[in-house]
Amino acid sequence: MEISGIISAILIGIIIGVLGRLAVPGRQRIGILWTIAVGIVAAFIGSGVAAAFGVADTKGIDWIEWLIQIGLAALGVAALDRSKVRR
């Protein structure tokens, strides 16, 4: 992966994290930096999952890849919020 791909993955990860947080109902007790970190990780993992299923490189916008990434970010935000509540 080139440096431009990594930078774009980070920027997309920020967007993915925010959308994933919006997808989780209720109030989350995690900060914005945790949300961004979860989004970046979800973007990288979601790209790998989409590539494994063969839906990563389509014409136009890769909606299925975005949905996978947002779903993973929502799971990550919910899991992190749940672990913060237990402490």
Rank of each mutant, 00 (worst) to 15 (best):
E2Y: 10
E2F: 10
I3V: 15
S4H: 14
S4E: 10
I6F: 10
I6S: 09
I7F: 15
S8Y: 04
S8P: 03
A9V: 05
I10L: 15
I10A: 15
L11R: 12
L11I: 15
I12M: 15
I12Y: 11
G13S: 09
I14L: 15
I15Q: 08
V18I: 04
V18H: 00
L19W: 01
L19Q: 00
G20E: 00
R21Q: 02
L22G: 03
L22E: 01
R27G: 00
Q28I: 01
R29K: 09
I30A: 05
G31D: 14
I32A: 15
I32W: 14
L33V: 13
L33M: 11
L33N: 11
W34G: 14
W34D: 10
I36S: 12
I36Y: 12
A37R: 08
A37Q: 06
V38L: 13
V38K: 04
G39Y: 02
G39S: 02
I40P: 03
I40D: 03
V41T: 02
V41L: 04
A43H: 04
F44M: 04
F44L: 09
G46M: 12
S47C: 13
G48W: 13
G48I: 07
V49K: 12
A50I: 07
A50N: 10
A51T: 14
A52L: 14
A52S: 10
V55D: 09
V55M: 13
D57P: 05
T58H: 13
T58N: 11
K59N: 14
K59A: 09
I61W: 15
I61S: 11
I61K: 11
I61E: 04
W66M: 05
I68A: 03
I68T: 05
I68Y: 08
Q69D: 02
G71C: 10
G71D: 06
L72M: 12
A73D: 09
A73P: 12
G76I: 06
G76S: 05
A78D: 04
A78L: 08
A79E: 02
L80C: 07
D81F: 02
R82A: 09
R82E: 02
K84P: 01
V85W: 01
V85D: 00
R86V: 02
R86K: 11
R87G: 06
R87C: 00
R87K: 11
